[in-house]
Every structure is written in C-alpha cells, then in structure tokens.
Amino acid sequence: MIGKSSRTGRTLQYLALAGYLIFLGFPLVWLVSTAFKPPRELVQLHPTLIPSNPTVQNFVQAFTEQELGRAALNSLQVSLASAVLTVLVALPASYALARFRSKLGTAALGWVLLSQLFPFVLLIIPIFLVLRQVGLANTHAGLVLIYVVWALPFALWMLQGFVRNIPRELEEAASVDGASRVQVLRRVVFPLLAPGVVATALFSFISAWNEFFFALVLIKTPELATLPVALARFVGIEGTARLGPLAAGSLLATLPSLIFFAFMQRRLSSGSLAGAVKG
C-alpha cells in the first residue's frame, strides 16, 4: 500500500496539520509575546514575534495601575461562592435524579436543553427587574445567584452521572448493616462522590469566572466589576502602549480555565469521568 500516492497523501496531511497549528497557535503566541514586551517594543513600527527584552512590568502594571487586581479578587469571590453553592444545591438533587426515575427529573433535563434556545435578552430583563426589587441588582450576591442557577442544569447532569457510577449494592449493604438513610449518604455515598464534586465545583467556578454578559448588565459600580468586565472596559482605553498590560491581564484571566482543562483532560483519560460523559 505504501506507494507514491500514499506518500503524497501523508505530505498533504502534514501540510494541513501545519496549517491548523499556525491558525490555532499563532494568536496565542502573539498574546504571550505582547504580554512580555516593554512599552518601547510595543510602539515600535514593526513589532517582532519574540520580545527582544522580555519584561514582567506589564503584569505589575496591570495589577497596580489598572485595578485589575481588585477585579480579579471580585471574580475570585463570586466564582468561589458560586462553585460552593452550586455543589451544595446540586448534590441532593443529583442523587434523587440518579437513584429514582422521576418525571420531574426528565422535565428538569428537558429544560436544560430547551433553555439553550433562548437568547439571554429574554432572561436578563426580568432577572434584572426581580433582583432590583429585592435590592440585589448591583451586588455580588445577585450575581452569584444567577451563576448558580445558570450552572445548575449542567452540574446536575454531571453529578448524577457520578452517582450512577456508585454501585447501588454498596448502599443496600450499608442499610442492611443498620445504617440510616442519612448515614448511608454521609458514610458511603459522599466519600465516593468526591471526584464528581470536585469536577462539578471546578465547572461552576470556571463558568462564573468566564461569564461576561450578566456581570456587564447587573454590576454598575466599577469597584464591584468582575475580571472580564474590567478587561472589556480596559479595551476601550486606546493607546498602543497599553496593549502590554491588557495582554498580561488577559493571560492571567485564562489561567484558572487552563488548569481546569488540564485537570479534566487527565480525568477524562483515566476514565473516572466516563459516567458523567456518557450520561
């Protein structure tokens, strides 16, 4: 089979792969390079791909002058609260969804799919009105509430996959031994669910960390802005020399998700997430 045609085929495949690598990779290289360039290199007429005098000055500046530090702290608070709350709320429900066939469960999962169809505009106005009525419109608490509800459907789906992976026999054995329902949950189910809880918490942390639209609409006080909103505001400030701190801030904003994906990839390959993936 190894003839001339298959060798040209291979060459074409490598050429295509190279094309993909350039398309996917170069913008990333450019972001990293811009983040490490001193102001002088940023404004020079013909920028270079690799900074000749790399510096961390942009990172320092992003945090001191542009108040991205405070925004990052806000984001951290909101995302942590969302992650913890999502898990606490989703845990009992996912157990019920996995262990008992219920029409309610089917309806909940159907809603997950259906809600994808609707543009955020339809949601945001009533949510904004409701939150304003209860005095949570311009607060982190209001934002956390929205993020929890937003992450819940997927969190439920993910966690119930993990619950399904725990053999029912384990629970039955424990209750035969005289453990109460609550004891079975606490001593048998929850410890085995730990990886699922971590994955779900990470997922809701990241979706809150990355979210932009709700934060843009609901938070009006600049001091309360989350990192994506602060970065987007920063974009509006023109001037080529500012691109350095902007790139540095963007790079830092990506780190949590990158860690998450690295973690998930290991989990995915080790198979412990298979249940969650297959549903």
């Binding site: 993909y20 690598l21 996917l24 990779g25 170069f26 913008p27 990333l28 450019w30 972001l31 811009t34 940023l42 404004v43 007429l45 920028p47 960390w209 990355n210 932009f212 994506p228 970065l231 987007a232 974009v235 080529t240 691109l243 902007l246 790139a247 963007s250 904003a253 990506t254 998700s257 990158l258 998450f260 994906f261 990839q265």
Partner: peptide
C-alpha cells in the same frame, strides 16, 4: 492547541484577536 481556545473566556478571545488585527501593532 485544539483545546486551548475553548478554555479561554470569550472576553480574552476578543482581546487576543484585537491584538492580532491591531492596525499598527498587530
């Protein structure tokens, strides 16, 4: 590489490409 863009917040993807498309420093 094929997964990295997925991990980026949409706002950062926007900023990243603004840098690529920048008329002077792009």
């Amino acid at each position: 590489l094929a997964v990295v863009p997925w991990a980026m917040p949409p706002v950062v993807v926007g900023i990243l490409w603004k840098l690529v498309y920048h008329p002077d420093a792009g």
